[in-house]
Simulated scan of single mutants.
Amino acid sequence: MVEVRADFLSHIQGQLHAQTEEMSTKEQVGENASRRNSLQFPAMATAKPLPKPTTDLKTVLDSEVKEWHFHIYFHQGNAEEHHYALELRDAVLRLRRDGAFIAVPLFRVNTDPIGPHPAGKFSSLSRDKAIIRMCADRINRGPLSILVHPLTREARADHEVRNSWIGPSWPLDTSTLPVRTFEIPLQYPSLKLGYSSKVPFISPEDRAALGANVEKVLLKEKDAARAPVP
């Protein structure tokens, strides 16, 4: 009887062990599935349809960017970078003098953080793409980083989401910048460029005629995409 009972107990223990392992495996699978669902749920809950690009002519014209700011950064404790920034600034001034582009660096070079900017820098206003090409060249830029942003009524968005970097980016503190101002902060209106330009306004009708002519010319270009039919 003792031997039978021992065999019986051994059999029962084996079954219990197998059942315990099976339950543990199921619990682990369920826990993993629950964890996956919990990780996926926020993404599903916050998913939003992407907005469509605007095709309204008036909206596009009213939001046209006509002036840009360039901020050239250097580590204020790095004498070599500081010197290089001054060299780049002087190069911009010489090229402006010679008619390469129109850019207006400020007379001062900041050697400490100021406003949203975390390091030494000098700033420049421009509406000319030629200066972008110049600054994008690694030989001209050297070890410096350059922040490029549009100049609009929404200064905070200009620095946060409408900006571009040439070289490594720097963290900005935009908390002091206004979300929106009533007027565009005009820069050097005496130049009569950008937002201060006196170029006659082109009416929507004239723009439509220009657009129709472009479409007509491009009909002969097999690689050119056709504008969608309204």
Rank of each mutant, 00 (worst) to 15 (best):
V2P: 07
E3T: 09
D7Q: 15
S10V: 07
I12S: 10
I12E: 14
Q13T: 08
G14Y: 09
M23V: 15
S24F: 12
E27M: 15
G30Q: 15
A33L: 15
P42E: 10
A43N: 08
A43C: 13
A43P: 01
M44A: 11
A47G: 04
A47S: 11
L50S: 01
L50C: 00
L50H: 03
P53D: 00
L57I: 05
K58V: 06
V60I: 15
D62A: 07
S63G: 06
S63V: 00
E67N: 08
E67Y: 04
E67P: 02
W68T: 01
F70T: 03
Y73K: 10
Y73P: 00
Y73T: 03
Q76M: 14
G77E: 14
N78R: 14
N78S: 11
H82C: 14
A85W: 02
E87H: 15
E87I: 13
E87A: 15
L88R: 06
R89T: 02
A91F: 03
V92I: 13
L95E: 05
R96L: 00
R97V: 01
G99Y: 04
F101H: 05
I102R: 08
I102E: 07
P105C: 06
V109S: 02
V109M: 04
N110F: 12
N110H: 14
P116W: 04
P116I: 01
P116Y: 06
H117W: 05
H117C: 04
H117F: 03
A119R: 03
A119Y: 03
K121M: 13
R127E: 00
D128M: 03
K129Q: 11
A130C: 02
I132V: 11
M134C: 02
A136M: 15
R138D: 13
N140S: 12
S145I: 04
I146Y: 00
V148Y: 14
V148L: 15
P150I: 01
L151K: 05
R153L: 07
E154Y: 09
A155M: 05
A157N: 10
D158Y: 03
S164D: 13
S164P: 05
W165S: 12
P168T: 12
P168D: 15
S169L: 13
P171Q: 12
L172W: 04
L172A: 08
D173N: 13
T174K: 04
T174C: 09
S175D: 03
L177M: 10
P178M: 06
R180E: 09
R180Y: 09
F182M: 11
F182K: 13
E183I: 08
E183H: 11
L186P: 06
Q187W: 08
Y188N: 14
K192T: 11
G194P: 03
Y195K: 04
S196M: 01
K198P: 00
P200G: 09
P200I: 07
F201C: 08
P204R: 04
E205G: 09
R207I: 11
A209I: 13
L210E: 13
N213D: 12
N213M: 10
V214K: 08
K216W: 13
L219G: 12
L219V: 12
K220Y: 07
E221F: 07
K222T: 04
K222P: 00
D223R: 10
A224P: 05
